[in-house]
Design a protein around this nucleic acid. Structure first.
Length: 595
RNA sequence: GGUUCCGUAGCUCAGUUGGAUAGAGCAACAGCCUUCUAAGCUGUGGGUCGAGCGUUCGAGUCGCUCCGGAAUCACCA
């Protein structure tokens, strides 16, 4: 539609003023609600070409377009704004066209499609997932669907941080205080079980630190010298040396954690195509660093540590290998990136990681480039903001961390309670009810998180439960369910609707508003992929649902006597439902048939 | 201190490559179920877009300065 306008306006300018108008001069936007019209041309930039006043220019162009283009039925000019009205029959034609496309709004990967690797989740295996991880997982998963819908080949991947001193801490605590207990023996999820030992380690460590500080040590010294810390370090050395007993313990505890993570991932509805483990990739990272050192890209200091000097790029020197030869965080990320490139030859690699690591990813990409990996230009840090509580950051010390499993459980419980209170889902089996309430509770949570601009920090107030009314996931799900319900009733009562356009249907303003939004959907999918913004999709869902609900409220669909009009409204409703379903799909939100 | 990000209604958030009188939801108040699902629809009140200066026909949006908040600058991850 915009293309058509753009072409027409360019012709008008050429014919009227004998000049070519570049794209930057043709500013077309949707007409604001308070004015009459569908599309607005901002004429100010063109008055330089026309050498007439903005008003006169607008009138001349409007006149030209109305006469030459059938789809444009009228225009009005307010100041420098040319408001164009699209003829109602053009809208029914558009609806017909959209309705006929089977996978409307989604694009197949063409010959030139990019391969995009998306890394998200990236958990440590010493703690269960919390609200911060939920934001990460939901963003990553949604991005993967959006990028795929825009026609890219997407690989969803995860890097599990399964080694390092933090893992050794929970291992040590279990060794010393576990008495052979297991998640099974305690009836606990494995990640929570292991996480408790990590917390226990910190508690016992603090008990050891206190007397040392009282005896005159600085807190830093005391921490380093505490017996538990020493033991944790020696456990890490044993692990790196491949000590069988340590490795066995590590494998056993990690397997507990993975079992727990699987449950959480399944509950959240996220998936991966390929999972990498830091315990594999750090070795490759070390090789790459040593190789690059030989090639002269890096610096070896006297103590044996290896660094890269990025001061020329206004960054610092960065450690890549410790003096004892062991790997740091950066080392394994270098290795992971190289392995992934070898695995997939990606065009782009998107890291979904919090903004606290902005510096890290700047260094990562630059380092790989210095090492000669040109593809590192395709690395992109998708940096999202923290989830904060009203009091500020979540602190595990103060027990204010919002646990992922707990939150999901609560959301479903709230959905269930609300459903009961509203007297919904009569006649459904318990299994069906539970499934729908699960979809709604998760829909509320996911939408709540995804509607916010990813790069901003967001606030979550545990005391106020997430809304189910207004601009929420359930609102959109509800709109979808309503539409499905109408379509089901149509089917049950034998009302059919043709997919072909009827010329004599003149849509009303509400209907046109909905069609306009439906018309935006494919462009929106592309834009969301380009901007990497699930929030765009979420806000679109809301707008579409709201617009449809107004139409639904004001007009009858099945009760319409005029068969052509009824058929048109059914087509409109069906496509709206389809688009809402697809948009929710892009957010990783399920759409219930009834609620 | 350096770098990066954020600041919009009481609260949570939208606001397109700079366009018209800055929008939603929640909360508050007032209405609408005999009719396809009221988790809905309609209305009322609520704003110095952190502050100032600049760029321009036009600034919430771009630039500079300042104020406030966050992150980061580890032989942690």
């Amino acid at each position: 539609m915009e293309k058509l306008l753009r072409k027409g306006i360019r012709e008008a300018v050429r014919s009227l003023y004998g000049a070519d108008a570049g794209d930057d001069l043709l500013q077309i936007q949707k007409t604001r609600r308070e004015f009459e019209g569908d599309f607005t041309l901002v004429v100010f930039p063109l008055s330089k070409i026309s050498h007439h006043s903005p008003e006169q220019t607008a009138n001349e162009i409007g006149e030209y377009l109305t006469q030459r283009i059938d789809a444009i039925s009228g225009f009005n000019v307010i100041k420098g704004f040319l408001n164009l009205t699209i003829s109602p029959s053009e809208w029914t034609t558009r609806l017909d066209g959209m309705h006929a496309v089977s996978n409307y709004g989604f694009f197949e990967p063409g010959p030139g499609a990019e391969t995009v690797v998306i890394e998200y989740s990236s958990p440590n295996t010493n703690k269960p997932l919390h609200l911060g991880h939920i934001r990460n997982n939901l963003l990553g998963y949604s991005l993967s669907r959006i990028c795929a819908a825009a026609g890219n080949n997407v690989i969803r991947t995860n890097i599990v941080n399964d080694r390092g001193i933090h893992i050794c801490k929970s291992m040590l605590a279990w060794q010393q205080y576990g008495n052979g207990r297991t998640p099974d023996s305690e009836g606990m999820k494995g990640d929570h079980f292991v996480g408790d030992y990590y917390v226990l380690f910190e508690k016992k460590l603090r008990e050891q630190i206190e007397p040392l500080v009282a005896a005159g040590s600085t807190p830093e010294e005391a921490r380093e010298n505490a017996p538990l810390m020493q033991e944790a370090r020696s456990l890490l050395l044993k692990w790196e040396a491949g000590d069988p007993e340590t490795v066995n313990l590590w494998q056993m505890m990690n397997s507990w954690v993975y079992k727990g993570f699987d449950v959480t991932y399944r509950a959240l509805g996220v998936e991966f195509d390929k999972i990498y483990y830091e315990s594999d990739t750090y070795k490759v990272g070390k090789e790459i660093v040593l190789h690059s050192l030989e090639e002269g890209h890096l610096i070896r200091r006297e103590d044996g540590s290896v660094w890269i000097d990025l001061t020329a790029d206004k960054l610092d020197q960065k450690l890549l290998l410790r003096s004892d030869g062991t790997a740091v965080y950066m080392t394994q990320d270098l290795g992971t990136a190289v392995i992934r490139y070898n695995d997939y030859h990606f065009d782009r690699h998107i890291y979904v990681v919090g903004n606290e690591q902005n510096y890290h990813f700047q260094v990562l990409a630059l380092t790989l480039l210095r090492m000669g990996y040109e593809w590192a230009k395709g690395l992109h840090h998708f940096s999202y903001g923290m989830v904060e509580l009203p009091e500020g950051k979540m602190k595990s010390r103060e027990g204010t961390v919002v646990d992922a499993d707990d939150l999901v459980t609560e959301m479903i419980a709230t959905a269930t309670a609300m459903s009961q209170e509203l007297g919904k889902l009569g006649g459904y089996s318990d299994i069906e009810k539970n499934n729908i309430c699960r979809q709604i509770g998760l829909g509320a949570l996911k939408y709540f998180i995804l509607k916010v601009d990813p790069k901003k920090n967001m606030t979550f107030n545990p005391k106020e439960s997430i809304d189910f009314n207004g601009n929420t996931g359930p609102f959109i799900q509800y709109t979808y369910a309503r539409i499905r319900s109408v379509l089901k009733k149509a089917e049950d009562t034998g009302v059919t609707f043709s997919s072909r356009k009827d010329d004599n249907v003149i849509p009303n303003q509400k209907e046109i508003s909905v069609i306009k939004l439906l018309n935006d959907f494919p462009g929106l999918v592309r834009e969301a992929a380009a901007e990497l913004s699930p929030a765009l999709i979420a806000n679109y869902c809301y707008e579409l649902a709201r617009e449809f609900n107004q139409f639904y409220h004001d007009y009858s669909i099945l009760g319409e006597e005029d068969g052509n009009l009824r058929s048109f409204r059914l087509r409109l409703s069906e496509l709206t439902g389809r688009v809402l379903g697809k948009a929710l799909f892009l957010l990783g939100i399920e759409a219930p048939e009834r609620m």
